[in-house]
Amino acid sequence: MLRVLGIDACRAGWVAVELHDGAFAGAYLGLRLDELLTPADAVGIDIPLGFLETGWREADTRAAQRLGPRRSSVFRVPPRAVWQRAPYAAANALCRELTGAGLSVQAYGLRPKVLEANTWFDAGRYPLYEVHPEVSFAGLAGTTLAYPKHTWAGAHLRRRLLAAGGIDLPDELGDAGRAGPDDVLDAAAAAWSAHRIATGRGVALPDPPQLNERGQRLAIWY
């Protein structure tokens, strides 16, 4: 049996969807990422994993190109030192120094979760793969989706796409049901990508993945 997890950040912490052989097997909510990380064949997570020392990652450029009109859902991930700098004004100034462009307040707001996830990515204890849910949903649909995930039409379209891909999300998710609907859908899309990776069908953007100065593979998978 192949066991995979898809994880997305949410207001309550993190929400995870578990698949067994590609089918829904459970959903979980955790305040910390380590509450959800358990042995699995692959873990897809919607958070940047891995940094460069200077410049921008190729993965973000490729993902934005793939999404076309929905490219605004992808933000460029700045170098490692930027994430380690506080407050925002100092991080933004350093980002301009290292890349020639600034860092948005929205992206910097993810800093605690980015640092938390990369602690585990650097440790190498779990098979973590960075995913982007909109890239995953585009893979499920065979095209970029017309409706944003926060709309009624967009949410129902994404749930139908997951069901068609073998992931039938139940109405009752227990404690995980406290997460936002879009967060649950994104976690399920991350799990779909993780299952593809575990079965050898995953696609990396870029392919082959970019290597950073630490030898880590930087890519967004679906």
Rank of each mutant, 00 (worst) to 15 (best):
A40H: 02
D34T: 10
G215W: 13
R85T: 15
E130A: 07
S73R: 04
H156L: 15
N212M: 10
L94W: 05
A187P: 01
E53Q: 13
L98E: 13
A90H: 13
I197E: 11
P209N: 10
A189G: 15
T99I: 02
G202R: 03
Q84G: 14
E172D: 15
P78Y: 13
D8A: 15
D186K: 13
S72A: 13
V82L: 12
L218V: 08
A16Q: 08
P148F: 04
G22F: 09
V105D: 05
A194R: 01
A155V: 03
I220H: 10
A138T: 08
H132S: 02
F121H: 14
V82R: 07
V43E: 06
D46I: 04
V17Q: 03
D8G: 06
E53M: 08
T38G: 08
Q65N: 09
N118Q: 00
V82H: 08
L110Y: 04
S136K: 01
T61F: 12
P133E: 11
C95S: 15
G139K: 06
T38R: 15
A117V: 06
L173F: 07
C95V: 05
R85N: 09
G165I: 06
L115T: 02
V203D: 06
G215N: 13
A146K: 14
V43A: 04
S104I: 04
G202V: 07
A90G: 11
S73A: 14
R3W: 12
L33V: 13
E130R: 01
A141W: 01
W14A: 03
Q210R: 12
L110H: 01
L211P: 09
A101L: 08
L110I: 06
I47C: 12
F75G: 03
F51G: 06
Q216Y: 06
L37W: 04
T144G: 10
P208C: 01
G109L: 04
G68E: 09
G124P: 05
Y28L: 14
R214T: 02
Y129S: 02
A179W: 03
D122G: 03
S104T: 15
R217L: 10
D168I: 10
G22E: 09
D183C: 07
D207V: 02
D60A: 00
L49K: 03
